[in-house]
């Protein structure tokens, strides 16, 4: 494993593992809320943060974290209050964020939009030690939220109305989900890039669902897939000299296709096992019962 001899590769692999864990970990709640593309929207808004980072000569990672967190909160507020025109407002937020990023970079002395491309498409080999520190801290936050509050976030993502009646602080939890998603976007920004970040949040979850029947198992399998593809993609990009972000996303989609192909035979085996375990009183074939039960009565 000569690739571990290089400090930049150690940083790249560490960042890749952290992204592989955090992106599916928050992504599963976005998928459960049926807002799988929220990560994509936050990615657009984060562009403005990166641009501001260049302009103000501040760390683009921390700047992007702050701006995308604000953007995510704004999206959540639009979801509450803007019932009918919410989609239009979101579109303006997304594309305004993108345009803002390009504008800020252009007006930066000596800046050009070429500077943006490492954030748009990821640039693992240029992850600096301070980037790694930021990524590690932000990842710790994401893991603490997604694991520590998993029961609350599960309840809110499944049924907001019911969650409110169990006394959960639904609005606070929704805001926390949005901010955590924003943080994850900036964690993943250096690895897969803002354009592709949403893929790593959504596709591992979708792939895991092909095999799983419970939320807990889906979470575990999705994170496993995430870590596998980010590590695999990083190593592949080192040996083959291909861009890591694109490699990781293509690997994730490949994992989805393989698991989907495996799902059908697995479902058949489960059905057979269930049939074997089924008691004689519950046969798989139809039989006319001797007497009628309550459920047989049909209302007239």
């Amino acid at each position: 494993m000569e690739l571990l001899d290089y400090a930049f590769m150690q940083r790249a692999l560490l960042a890749a593992v952290l992204v592989g864990i955090t992106a599916p970990a928050i992504g599963i709640y976005l998928v459960q809320r049926r807002q799988p593309l929220m990560g994509d929207g936050i990615g657009h808004v984060a562009m403005t943060g990166v641009g501001l980072g260049f302009l103000l000569n501040a760390s683009p990672v921390w700047m992007a974290t702050a701006v995308s967190a604000l953007g995510a909160i704004l999206m959540e507020l639009i979801r509450w209050y803007g019932r009918t025109r919410g989609d239009i407002a979101l579109a303006m937020l997304f594309y305004g964020g993108m345009a803002g990023g390009v504008m800020f970079v252009s007006v930066t002395p000596g800046g050009s939009t070429a500077n943006l491309s490492s954030y748009l498409f990821g640039s693992l080999s240029t992850v600096s030690p301070s980037d790694v520190t930021a990524i590690a801290l932000l990842s710790a936050f994401v893991v603490a939220v997604t694991l520590g509050l998993r029961r609350q976030l599960f309840a809110v993502s499944l049924d907001e109305e019911f969650a409110r009646v169990t006394g959960l602080p639904v609005r606070a939890l929704n805001l926390l989900t949005a901010v955590t998603a924003a943080v994850t976007v900036t964690v993943a920004m250096r690895v897969v890039g803002l354009i592709l970040v949403s893929a790593l949040m959504v596709v591992p979850v979708a792939a895991a669902q092909q095999l799983t029947r419970s939320f807990a198992a889906t979470f575990a399998v999705a994170v496993t897939i995430g870590v596998t593809v980010t590590l695999g993609g990083t190593v592949t990009s080192y040996y083959q000299d291909v861009p890591p972000g694109a490699t990781i996303v293509l690997l994730t989609i490949a994992a989805f296709l393989v698991l989907t192909a495996l799902a059908a035979p697995l479902a058949r085996r489960r059905a057979r096992a269930a049939a074997a375990a089924r008691p004689a009183a519950d046969p798989a074939e139809c039989a006319i019962p001797a007497s009628r039960a309550a459920g047989d009565e049909v209302g007239v």
Partner: peptide, 13 residues
Amino acid sequence: GGVPATVTEVVTA
């Protein structure tokens, strides 16, 4: 929701 969940997981909520 968009993710599979078991009967127990839903009732636990």
